[in-house]
Design a protein around this nucleic acid. Structure first.
Lengths: 224, 224, 224, 224
DNA sequence: GATGAATGAGGATTCATTCAT
DNA sequence: TATGAATGAATCCTCATTCAT
């Protein structure tokens, strides 16, 4: 039965010259989305090492052969998933890390940055699984590094904007620490629900506020 | 001291004056130590799920059968390892979390508590691996929980000693957050060496000082 | 009671001149008895193939090494057990198959023969397990054959005594069938308890009576 | 009507327009047959406990992985085999136990019932192995019970038809005994060949005739 | 003689991956 | 392209047997 193409994927579409050969690809895109969704679900349940490609295929409702038509191996699935999450982040919450937030007072900035980040993680729990990735083999780490690094860079930028004069290595340490703080707090946030989760969100913001305030707050950029 | 753990025998046991249970314990005890050391090493490299019992046996220089003479299954190895680490901690650094530290000024207290904790983790990197344990099966979590819980309790005690009037749930959240902060910072510490590691240790203490100071500092113990 | 030596194999026993050095052997005899008892128990639970020598040693309360000091391998344990059972039978119930029963009326003879046989089996359930031995490797079959054959021979003798004129091959078939009938009925007997067991014993005797009566019953040997 | 047996799909394909469930069944079905045949052969040689799944796979000329694509574990192979045998019996010899035989004179009835049963066992020696199944784990016993029970029920029916007035428990005992007699005789039949086998078949019928004749024969249903 | 340790091949089962249709 | 079959090495674990003390 002839399928109609391109139902959903690839939100940033700038079809320059090619949208002819896409016809055939449409189904493929959907398959990939299916598979990545299944992978996210399985990774969340069992971690990367514990996930079997057969289990992912089954969860996606396809045969193992089909999975391997789109991903050359298990690693590529994780990489593909992190790519997708990164892109999803960029298009849906990405502006949270945008430069304009730099000028807000620290507490407002933390709200502006953390709330979308937390929301994103709540919506995409696989993100956290891949980030922590304590058992993922080499190449994935790098790819994860991209994702990790993207956030890291943003954090560093934010710091640099407010504290332009500091030494680079200290700035890097602060960025790293800030990111780790966030990941730690996020774990706690994810581990609770409802009011308790809210309380942990507040607590996380408190941690970060107190940590960053002496550096960024005061008369800093957003000060006055 | 006579220890009998998992294996099986010793059906009729009435220890008058002797230690029948385990006669040939010398070699066995050494093997167990060897195996746990090997397990620590392999777990660090590959995580729990990724570790194969054959790899652990090989690392320990024994046959798979020998491993299974001392541990009934893979889980038991991790449990045994966490037990050993817990005991090792208790005997060698345990006093770090002791009550007397409660009366120190916050910054001194952080030194007193964190330095041994960090030192222990540096010496026993498997500790961190088991703690994070994102993919470990049920029973280990509980055992790890013991370990985790032991620290958590200490942290809560410390907080309660300084802040006796606060609501219990907030205190619990603070304890949890403190522990997570530590784990997060520790990751960074472990990921670096030499001067950089020192810098991260300082940074971690800064984070914790700033987080806890408003709650515990002031006039409390250390006024500042 | 003077013990006969026979440390392990040597199915063909010809005690020349030695029975002095037996003093030291006493403990060994007890060990062997212990081990065979344990083996009987384990074989009953799991069958020969399913039984592990370690399990037998454990059941006997000794170490695997000790077991192998008395039996060169697993097969030898089964062989030793069947030897022991055979001997036990010979000394305690053996007269059941004795020649004098030959002259009894068939129903009385069946009582005289079957009751001890059943009693023996009830007391030594391992006997049945080894007899059926559906999964026992080659050599055991032969040894079992001895045991099996011993009974078979008796049965044949009984038949021959009553039916001296028949063709040998038919007599052999009748003996085989009689034995199999008994084993079949015994299974049913063993599978029940109390009154039901009694009923099956009666039923078994009925079977055998009806089968053998035309051959052996009536007045003298050759009925009709 | 659509039948699905153990795997899950339907080998007999006559559904209107869709055959989604299992497309690539041809090869698979053949493999299953191959594997069951191999399993029958190996079970006959070594019994259930002694059979290794690798040996079965090897006998079938496939890799272990392939075996596990069709059977989740060793038990399932035995269950699948008994299912297949049961079905094979039902379709090829099943009418032997049909009700109409009830009205034949006992000797004719025994021929009508036993000959197909014996023929079936000769053709499918694994049947006997599974039936005796002295070492098979729990679930198989149940499945075997089905098989066993199917025959038992038939036997009971036959007896009930001829002897409607008897007490139920005695009828059950007679059925059990009859079945056991058959199994015992069958062992003898299977253990011989040619003329000797024929002689044992006759002997078996004699046993059963003499056992059942007083109950069923005479003026019984089909008597005279 | 007894023990517990040691062995290593083998057993059931899984899994990432490839192949034929 | 999609499927399910096929693979075989690897996994966890067991077991008969031997060794050192």
């Amino acid at each position: 039965m002839p399928e109609n193409q391109q139902t959903e994927e690839s939100p940033t579409r700038r079809e320059r010259t090619e949208d002819r050969p896409r016809r055939r690809q449409a189904r493929g895109e959907r398959r990939i989305a299916q598979l990545l969704e299944a992978a996210a679900s399985v990774f969340c349940r069992t971690g990367y090492t514990g996930a079997s490609t057969n289990a992912i295929a089954r969860e996606a409702g396809v045969s193992p052969g089909t999975l391997y038509q789109f991903f050359p191996n298990k690693e590529a699935i994780a990489v593909g998933l992190s790519d997708q999450l990164l892109e999803h982040w960029a298009t849906s919450h990405g502006q949270a890390l945008a430069a304009e937030n730099t000028s807000l007072p620290l507490d407002r900035m933390l709200d502006a940055v953390l709330d979308p980040l937390i929301a994103f993680n709540v919506e995409n729990p696989a993100f956290g699984v891949l980030m922590h990735a304590p058992d993922t083999p080499g190449r994935i780490i790098e790819e994860i590094g991209t994702l990790h690094g993207a956030i890291l860079t943003r954090v560093e930028d934010l710091i640099a904007a407010r504290l332009p004069g500091g030494p680079a290595d200290q700035r890097e340490r602060t960025a790293n620490m800030t990111l780790m703080l966030f990941k730690a707090g996020l774990t706690l946030v994810m581990a609770h629900e409802g009011a308790e989760r809210q309380a942990y969100i507040t607590e996380l913001k408190t941690v970060m506020y107190r940590y960053l305030e002496p550096l960024l707050g005061e008369d800093g950029a957003g000060g006055h």
